[in-house]
Design a protein around this nucleic acid. Sequence first.
DNA 1: TCCAAATCATCAAAGGTTTGATTAATTGGG
DNA 2: CCCAATTAATCAAACCTTTGATGATTTGGA
Lengths: 179, 179
Amino acid sequence: MTHNTAPPTDLTFWSFVDYAVQKAERELPSVDAEAMRMVLTLNRATSMVIYDLESSVHRPRGLTWPGFRVIFALWLAGPMEAKTTAEISGMSRAALSALLNTLERDGLIVRERAEHDRRALQLSLTEAGYGAILGGFRAHNRRESAWAEALEPEERRELVRLLNKLMAGSTTAQAKFRS
Amino acid sequence: MTHNTAPPTDLTFWSFVDYAVQKAERELPSVDAEAMRMVLTLNRATSMVIYDLESSVHRPRGLTWPGFRVIFALWLAGPMEAKTTAEISGMSRAALSALLNTLERDGLIVRERAEHDRRALQLSLTEAGYGAILGGFRAHNRRESAWAEALEPEERRELVRLLNKLMAGSTTAQAKFRS
DNA sequence: TCCAAATCATCAAAGGTTTGATTAATTGGG
DNA sequence: CCCAATTAATCAAACCTTTGATGATTTGGA
């Protein structure tokens, strides 16, 4: 165990990436440092953006981040089966089930049995749910704009392109997906 | 409410971004579509990568994703105060407090009072914790490599540069940070 | 010196996530 | 036509996160 060299005392959420990559290379020479840096940076950037959106926009309005994602999906892809909602909002069916209890209790969505398949659930927004997403999304999008301003338009497109390419690679990488 | 046009029935986690951006523009003409696309894509890509790492590497080894982050930080930045651990692993002090109960119970870390300030907590890895991170991180880094292969080396560097620029902009954007 | 303000950690309540059952409904091959 | 396999949803237990409150310590200025 090589905990001898004292780490800088002023490590921050930002500066930790550089420090970690260098230290890991010394500790474990076989490490893929560039991959490590990429994943670490991706996580940090996303975590910052989401924390800002959730804490400054959605929580004050009574929604959690996952709650927002579901209402948002229902707003845009309109009444649909719960299975689809889970898929496009990126959560497991079990997680959605639990989340729907809260959203239903708060009067934002309605659960109904699907007609063609009595196992399936049909989800739709209530008027209150529609109102919540309209107001919430405007504020949400203003924060998105503020973040986006950090990059030039061309850089934003390039970032999106690279992220899409990364996601497309998940097949080759044999990534595990949420079921 | 304009839920008239039926959404495609084959929406997936991937394809939802394009659909959502277009629909939002029709629904709310004032929307900043490019910012929306950027944040949506950033979230999806990160969510896929983290889900893969957590479910294929860490959970099978008995660690959660947050648990891994803490052990990882302690491995690289050595014995340190809990406050610093929370900062560099990106969680609130309260969240870390709860998480430490599990890690301590599992014998991976040790909590001690700091000598210079009896309010503070000094955290360090146990031998078991050190063993867990060594094995876990190797597997973790192999998955990171697999993901990184989707991009050319130059593209990986550019992605990191853009993400860092985005984070740097959080100051200008007056983002809210975790306390 | 002394006490109010600041700082560190934990607690409590409400919520969301994961994995691994379990229950209900539908499907498809024999 | 019927039953086994599949599929949709929910449940249960264990965990992590958030916000807000509470208990210790330490600090800094009167």
